[in-house]
Design a protein around this nucleic acid. Structure first.
Lengths: 192, 192
DNA sequence: ATAGTTTTAGAACATTTATTTTAAAAAAAC
DNA sequence: GTTTTTTTAAAATAAATGTTCTAAAACTAT
């Protein structure tokens, strides 16, 4: 009952995410978001509470709709083959994308610019993806696909760092062509 | 003639750099800088023109006094040994540092938050350090210290990415211990 | 000393920002 | 059709921000 809302929450979050991704938290104003989403200020605040609430929703959306799907293949194939497919996808996809960096990683160096809660979200995200990779690597080790002497935790850190950091460096536009080659380097690091 | 200034430009830039480094450009207010440096607003604007001018001076200072010295050893030893010493220093030093990331890299994902001129400065910096590394690697190749099939440009990209990006990831505090091990991985990548 | 020059402290200004309020608009319930 | 409920549009507010101005302070040269 009551007047029906004229917006879709998901569409709004999707667009807001784009603005935060492009500008960073602090450099994004509510006006920017309002302009981009078409949603008015009052509804914005009613729906998300405040700017931080909106950012938090954007982070969740990023996890669930941008990064999450890319890790799907690793969840379905928690082994060396999964790692391989995952990395191949990531580095081929990244080469075509806009190189805005990883929304989460971009805010890793700005932990005290965002709220403690958002920092927590970012930290949890890093831990989560790293443990996904490590689980796959541990299985690979158990199956004898990688050496028993390999430090899977360290390798997982390395992989996540490369995956979520390379794209950032890729923003330096003329270096785009280098990105896909990271795939070979990383796999060699895991295998040999 | 005239009243003598009560501040040292270099000391001011040094402190301003620290604030920008910690917060990022947009999240740093002139008030923050004034509070931190003790310098008053008028002198700030007389000396640097505006906020962008101050940030530009901070970037220069970072290049000349923070990163520059670390590359000294590579300039003096433009060969494999130089690369080795450089990386050892960087990764051992980074393990002890504060993990604020690389001031320049932190702004790579925020190119249009800062001014085009500052973006230019950041880009030039990346190109500069990369060509330093590549020069050393090319010499190493000429001297037969690394294989003739190695793509020195690509390796240089990889090294710079790791050097200036790892520290960023290192901010994820509990992973600090992983950082020093990157040294081995990178050297293996170069050598084998 | 006085005049001239530059820096300083801090008030002043204009704009932007995050957020709240007010009143009209659009639907459902009775 | 009136009441009730929720959303909306836009004005209003309050604080923060980038920048400029004013007048006093601190020095040099004459």
């Amino acid at each position: 009952m009551g007047r029906p809302r004229s917006y879709s929450r998901e569409a709004v979050v999707e667009k807001a995410m784009g603005v935060f991704w492009q500008n960073g938290y602090k450099a994004t104003s509510i006006s920017d978001v309002v302009r981009e989403t078409g949603l008015n200020t009052a509804s914005m605040y009613k729906e998300f509470g405040d700017k931080e609430g909106l950012f938090s929703a954007a982070l969740d959306h990023y996890r669930d709709h941008v990064i999450g799907p890319r890790y799907r293949i690793l969840i379905d194939n928690p082994n060396l083959e999964g790692v391989e497919m995952f990395l191949r996808n990531v580095f081929l996809g990244a080469a075509k994308s806009e190189y805005k960096g990883c929304l989460m990683m971009n805010h890793l160096a700005q932990k005290h610019v965002i709220s403690p809660e958002a920092a927590e979200q970012v930290g949890a995200f890093c831990a989560e993806v790293e443990s996904l990779v490590e689980a796959a690597l541990r299985n690979a080790q158990a199956e004898g696909d990688i050496g028993p002497d390999k430090d899977t935790a360290q390798l997982a850190s390395f992989v996540v760092f490369c995956v979520h950091g390379t794209v950032l460096y890729g923003r330096h536009d003329e270096k785009k062509h280098v990105i896909p080659n990271f795939y070979d380097m990383i796999m060699r690091e895991i295998r040999e």
